Amino acid sequence: MADTDFPAEIAEVRDTLRRITEVIDVQALREEVADLEERAAAPDLWDDQANAQRVTSQLSHKQAQLERITTLEQRIDDAEVMAQMAAEEDDDDVRKEASDELVSLRRALESLEIVTLMSGEYDELDAVVTIRAGAGGVDAADFAEMLLRMYTRWAASRQWEVKVLDTSYAEEAGVKSATFEIKAPYAFGTLSVEAGTHRLVRISPFDNQGRRQTGFAAVEVIPLLEGTESIDIDENDLKIDVYRSSGPGGQSVNTTDSAVRITHMPTGIVVAMQNEKSQIQNRAAAMRVLESRLLLQKKEEEAAEKKELAGNIKASWGDQIRSYVLHPYQMVKDLRTHHEVGNASSVLDGDLDGFIEAGIRWRAQDSENS
């Protein structure tokens, strides 16, 4: 086996981690964790359940981030010991194990470095994602459901909490729209690069002549702003409809009118929720998303910038950010970053990290150049 300069390579990964932790400011992160732990230990914490949930959620997020850094520090120390053992015992198996671990460490550090590129006002927050079928009929609705599965599988692979809030099923197959929350550190900053129009090209399983079809779906990503600021919503400005939740094919999944649709009449914003068990829970979830959208709109108006966060997504030709081609060849290609993968099935199964990391780097570079 060829010799590897382990001391130099370990020094390099250690220096990379040091530079990353300087940007993240680990000492400040430790102080935040200590403060949140103190607040979480307060005997009256759960007197205000909404605040208690925010505190415990923030604590969990910050602890996970700190643990990620300390785990990497320990892994580098362990790799150094492994490399020393390989040299002392002249053991090729241990040497290969140490080399493989260094490759894994570099990949983990590249992923951690992505966090340092997310410095937007809302990047640390949880995300609310809405997928809507666009042009393309039943193929677009089926594609929207494929994207829902893709994002939920991707989040599950990261052990991120996903909660589907609303699903509106299409008549023949797929979904007209779906809304879900992702609760994790930097969920919005991470997923915001996925906002835009996605395009699918394939032989349609719904075309009895086996022709190639194109379908579009729009992905909207907004930060969950609940509790970060306050906004007054006049109850008189709301139109609230209740109806029976339903599943595919119109099958009832609830025997009561528990689904809720809230229309904010001054802005025309509509939020529907049906996946909670009661009308009260669905209304609370809908109000949470409505408040986030209104706060975001307020911020955009104050800053005179109506772009980047939710955007105007048409879900049709001419404005797509990514193409998923299943026929006549397999290819997923991002039209902004030019990142592409030949295995479309793996991407649709949730293997998105390459696209998301390329998107975050592209956005940071674009921001520097603008």
Rank of each mutant, 00 (worst) to 15 (best):
K299F: 10
S316Q: 14
D234V: 03
T190E: 08
P43R: 04
A217M: 09
D126K: 05
I114T: 15
S258K: 13
E305Y: 08
M265G: 00
Q365M: 12
W46F: 14
T4H: 11
S192V: 14
E97K: 01
D319W: 11
A52P: 08
D234K: 12
Q84Y: 01
T167E: 15
Y169M: 06
G210E: 06
H264S: 07
E124G: 09
A315M: 08
F188C: 03
G137I: 06
G342W: 04
M331F: 07
V270F: 01
V242C: 11
A144V: 11
A187K: 04
P205K: 06
A52T: 08
V332F: 06
L326M: 14
L148D: 08
R107M: 07
K314T: 15
R361H: 02
G174F: 00
A259M: 12
V270T: 15
E220C: 06
M85N: 09
L147F: 14
Y329H: 12
L165A: 09
L296W: 01
Q281T: 01
A86H: 04
M82I: 00
A34P: 12
I182M: 09
V23Y: 07
P7M: 01
S345C: 00
R106T: 09
D166E: 15
T190Y: 00
A40Y: 04
Y122P: 08
R14Q: 15
K299W: 10
Y151F: 14
Q365I: 06
T56E: 09
V201T: 13
D257T: 09
E340Q: 15
L36S: 11
T116R: 05
V55G: 04
A218Q: 11
R107Q: 14
F206T: 13
Q53S: 14
V103F: 14
Q74D: 09
T152K: 10
V162A: 08
R30S: 07
P223V: 12
A170H: 13
G134D: 11
K307N: 10
S177L: 13
F143V: 13
V162P: 06
S323F: 03
S323I: 09
A28P: 03
D90G: 03
S119H: 06
G350A: 03
G359K: 12
D232K: 15
A98G: 05
T56F: 03
A218G: 11
E235V: 14
R199E: 04
P266V: 07
K62A: 15
A310H: 09
S323H: 10
A108Y: 02
D78F: 08
I321D: 05
R288W: 02
E73M: 10
